[in-house]
Design a protein around this nucleic acid. Structure first.
Lengths: 335, 335
DNA sequence: TTTTATTTTGTAAACGTTTACATTTTTCAT
DNA sequence: ATGAAAAATGTAAACGTTTACAAAATAAAA
């Protein structure tokens, strides 16, 4: 590997001059410029980014931590993040944590060690203390998730309201016994959705039935398995509200396999509006989150943080939308 | 931000001593150790990774470039890569190129600037010259893709053979007019699959019909649109072989929408065996690539390269498997 | 107690850049 | 030609670590 020193030597100039031509050369005479450029060519010189970053004290890289890369819900958020990053001359790197908290910790540490300029976490599953500490000194923003009583900038939808909306819809179609597939109880977001579900039941004078709540990991497979187990349990239910589209897709599969008609025998509703939800049979009723915009705003906040600006709204809540499709209502609005 | 100097000062020792305790302290007396640790605590000190990496001349980070994060095909490969990386104490960061070559170039440059120790590219769509140059000096391995006549270590399946296998299967079920959905002709991989398709036709005495070839972008939507357009073109076909499962899923959707029975009226076959392929209706006949293993081996080669070892097999070809499901054969083996 | 071996600590150079400042060279008005 | 102003170049410190080597402190042996 050749360094700036080698180039300087070969070109017969000082390293300062080489550095100048590397950065875009304002005050360098044509002939030295030529000499330096030729040396760069000959030596196939590439400046060492680490040294440069060490000097500059920033990297222009940010990390986005996603809980699980195979959940397509995150892809469109990522898009919003990336395009905003690009506009601000930052580059994003994705860290897939496979739902393992230790990985999030690792990257949080990377941030504190200045390996990157900032982090957007789509997860926030990590030890609260570490996160709080990190966030008080370094640029971090959380999207989709949020943390109670912890001053970390975030953007989410109103999960309670959204869950209430979708349950109210199910009930409005005549359903009375709504099963609920939820996930990881340590995530506030799933708790909120459960709370919204409860609120809706109460609002409509229906009883909460503990036997209708099932805990899944947020995947098609797990939704499938839990629905089957629900079916086998003998519990009566005429609708399934899954706290994520992947689980809902699993539920649909299980119900169809058992010969139930959707939505007549059992309606299904999901949450997130992932791409596949409009494509499966029947198309899935769900809550659409403004994914792109969430990404945009999250990155917007992060950029401000990185620049050291003070950010105004600490916790943004973005609007959601109820998308009614045929899994809950024949002839539902297809969108 | 406190530095090692601050810690040394507060603890009343030299920076060398602090450095020693940071790295795991063999020869440091109990009382200085305590003093240093206390100073670290008080100052909330985190060593600067950039400085450390600059000194060590490596980062332990590697980048995996994926063409498109929303293609689930890559997720399992990633898993193989990650677990192998972890075993070797390396960390992977994912760069999603959204099929934009400029992004790949950016990260290639990052490698050449020593920002990371190596790159695994699942794409290789970049200017060949840049890649060749980079690969001759830096650790790079390509997976799933490969480049003609260019000495970059790679691992792929035999795409020609696999495409031939699947077409032969389609023909063996009695199909005679097989449409082919392919993608991005500048990718050798799609060319190979097309070649395999051709080989199979020839082998079976069938004529090549240019009108049955459609170029898509590798997505559900595009597969759907091109199949519709094929249907509208009036061309006769009784099977669709898509060069990727996402496109095949789009094809299934289009065919069903038009009321065609699968596989009786038109069989469908894909390529890759993504998770969704077993779950859709009807389940999709496809080629299974040993995804996890591809990831493992790719990372294995990269580790060797990073360590400066010489690697033996430059271009590995991994075995594939024909998975027959109901989209091509009623009662097809479900796997 | 002295000498020697061992353990702990410190000094300073190095990693590869950038940049303020000083110096030299060039340009141009006089 | 001379001097001043402008432009080009060089010197050296800094960014925050690690580590070979030297020095000092401690422990062990005589």
């Amino acid at each position: 590997m050749s360094t700036i020193k080698d180039v300087a030597e070969l070109a017969g100039v000082s390293i300062a001059t080489v550095s100048r031509v590397m950065k875009g050369a304002q005050n360098v005479s044509p002939k030295t410029l030529a000499a330096v450029n030729s040396a760069i060519q000959q030596l196939n010189y590439h400046p060492n980014a680490l040294a440069r970053q060490l000097k500059h004290q920033h990297t222009n890289n940010i990390i986005v931590i996603i809980p699980d890369i195979s959940n397509t819900f995150f892809h469109e958020i990522l898009l919003g993040i990336e395009e905003t990053a690009e506009k601000n001359n930052m580059h994003i790197l994705i860290a897939d944590m496979h739902n393992k908290p230790s990985i999030e910790e690792y990257y949080l540490k990377a941030l504190m060690q200045k390996e990157v300029d900032g982090i957007i976490s789509l997860s926030a599953n990590v030890a609260q203390q570490l996160l709080t500490q990190a966030a008080s000194n370094f640029p971090i923003v959380i999207a989709c998730q949020y943390l109670q009583n912890i001053p970390v900038p975030s953007i989410t939808i109103d999960n309670i309201k959204a869950a209430r909306d979708i349950c109210n819809h199910l009930i409005s179609t005549g359903k009375r016994n709504i099963a609920h597939l939820t996930a990881l109880p340590n995530f506030l977001l799933y708790q909120d959705r459960l709370n919204g579900y409860n609120a809706s039941l109460k609002e409509n004078g229906l009883d909460f039935q503990a036997g209708l709540i099932r805990y899944c990991s947020p995947s098609v497979r797990s939704g499938y398995e839990q629905t089957l187990s629900l079916l086998d349990s003998g519990q009566k239910f005429d609708a399934v509200f899954a706290a994520g589209d992947t689980m809902a897709i699993g539920a649909i599969r299980a119900l169809k396999e058992r010969g139930l008609r959707i939505p007549e025998d059992c309606a299904v509703a999901g949450f997130d509006d992932i791409e596949m939800s409009a494509l499966i049979e029947p198309p899935l009723t769900t809550i659409r989150q403004p994914k792109y915009r969430i990404g945009e705003e999250a990155m917007g906040m992060l950029v401000a943080l990185v620049k050291g600006e003070h950010i105004q709204k600490q916790n943004i809540v973005a609007p959601h939308q109820l998308i009614i499709r045929e899994s809950s209502e024949k002839g539902g609005i297809k969108k």
